[in-house]
Amino acid sequence: MNTPEAPRPKIAALASYALIGAALLLIMWQGLLPGLLCACLGFLATRWLSPRLGPLLRARDGLAPRLSAAVVALLPLVLIALALPHTRGLIVDAPGQYRELLAFMARTMLELRDRLPPDIAAQLPDGAQEVQRVIAAYLASKAGALALTGRAWLTGLLFAYVGLLIGALAAARPSARQLKPLAAALHLRLHRFGETFRQIVVAQFFIALFNTFLTAVFLLVVLPLWDSRLPYTMALILLTFVAGLIPIVGNLICNGVLTLVGLSVSPLVALACLAFLIGIHKAEYFINAKVVGARTHMSVWELLSVMFVMEAVFGPAGLVAAPLFYAYAKKELQASGWV
């Protein structure tokens, strides 16, 4: 009599795989990645804060999770309210800032020979000018594309905050004691996805925060001591944080942008930027290899291959999502004994 019930867990597991895969594809196609990442962040932050508030409250059960969710939901609003008078242009008009930065880099690339010392400029091959024009045209095209992303940027910020709310509220919800087969399978999929997020994105977040702090000190303190200042300093600091969330490729983006902007000031400043970036990113390579790579069992060639494919399909968002999605897929395959 129990035979018809036997296949249900396997069918539920297959259905959960299909639903999770479809949900991730939908998130990428509809540009909801900021919401997904912030939902995971809100969930983990609430779960981390709740047991720490519990002993302080000494109140009835269930209050600590709800209070933790309220703190996680309100803290970004408080921070934005405090910082907005000083960073309104950077937060609201970020696409315009980066459009100007890309156009500035394109002009710098075209004027490369004029900015280098004569002895070094004379050593450049004749074909270098054509390469300069190609790179400058690419940068100018990206600047033109950013002219249309103002509304998308603000929408992304809204999605990110809504995702944070969803994650915080989900973490504050009491856990169900008994789940039906499909719900149990989905709960397991989401648990593994959350574990992958914690292993990769949270570690990468702190790496990016560390890099951003050092870069801010370099741009706002060290260079001014040498009577040198880079244009678009605040935009460069924000770019360092966002690019730092992308393993490996983010380093290359930061190195290229800061060095080229430094070259617009002087070759010596460009050399100082390059030396500084190589120094701090050596530490990041070590952390990535020892922490992120060891936890997820991902080699560099795997990560780069997946990032290349995801960027080709989904654009820049694919670069951010590739390490998370690939590590999650690999975790599921390992749990099933396939790899």
Rank of each mutant, 00 (worst) to 15 (best):
P51K: 03
G144A: 07
A45Y: 04
L303V: 04
A140T: 10
A329Y: 07
A294V: 04
A329Q: 11
A185N: 02
A203V: 10
L220K: 06
E111F: 10
K142L: 15
P323E: 00
F197N: 00
L219H: 05
E284D: 11
F213D: 04
A94K: 07
L67A: 05
L319Q: 00
A216R: 09
L179N: 03
R133Y: 12
G262S: 04
I278V: 11
Q199D: 12
A137G: 14
S336K: 11
D114Q: 14
L179H: 09
L182F: 08
T296G: 07
P51I: 02
E284I: 07
G35T: 01
K330G: 12
H86W: 14
Q30D: 07
C273G: 04
E130F: 10
V292P: 07
M298P: 09
T87D: 12
A203L: 11
G35A: 10
L188Q: 13
R115D: 03
C38M: 13
Q132Y: 13
M28R: 03
Q334D: 04
G150C: 09
A70M: 14
G35S: 06
T149Y: 06
V320C: 08
A6S: 14
S141F: 08
L101M: 13
M28A: 03
P174L: 04
G35V: 05
M28T: 06
H191T: 14
W338Y: 08
A184M: 15
L124Y: 05
T233V: 11
A106F: 06
T87F: 12
V134T: 09
W338S: 08
L67F: 07
L238M: 14
C40R: 05
S264E: 04
A122K: 07
N251Q: 13
S299L: 10
F205M: 04
L102H: 05
L252T: 09
V309A: 00
A312C: 12
L41W: 06
A136E: 05
L220S: 04
D227K: 08
A137D: 14
V265M: 10
K180G: 15
L44Q: 02
F159W: 12
I237L: 15
S68R: 01
Y98V: 15
L165S: 06
Q129A: 13
K10R: 15
Y98H: 14
M307H: 02
R60V: 11
A81T: 09
L179R: 05
G250K: 03
A208E: 01
F205T: 03
A103H: 12
M307D: 00
K331Q: 13
F286R: 14
G262C: 09
L44D: 01
T240R: 03
